[in-house]
Amino acid sequence: MSIGYDSWAVDLGEVGPIYPMQGWEIPMVVVGVIFWLVWHRLQFVQEGKDLEQAKQIADADKIAKAIERY
């Protein structure tokens, strides 16, 4: 993917952005936002599952020991 230059035979005073996929900033940000939102979704689901599982394995004896352990 081009960064807009295939050589550095340029006057740096006239150079601006040098990242790949220039012109695709908005779609890239959309992808980034989707990544962030999907992360929340996955994390919600995962934590819910973990807590449900923890609820099942916590018998009275274990809870008492955990309280004692502080």
């Binding site: 050589s7 550095w8 035979a9 340029v10 006057d11 740096l12 005073g13 006239e14 150079v15 040098i18």
Partner: peptide
């Protein structure tokens, strides 16, 4: 400075570079 890099870069604009002396 481009003068010290002594490569293909033209003009007189100073810059930071990576280890290969390419601008960043």
């Amino acid at each position: 400075s481009p003068e010290v890099i002594d490569g293909q870069i033209t003009g007189a604009t100073w810059t930071a570079t990576n280890i290969y002396l390419a601008p960043t």
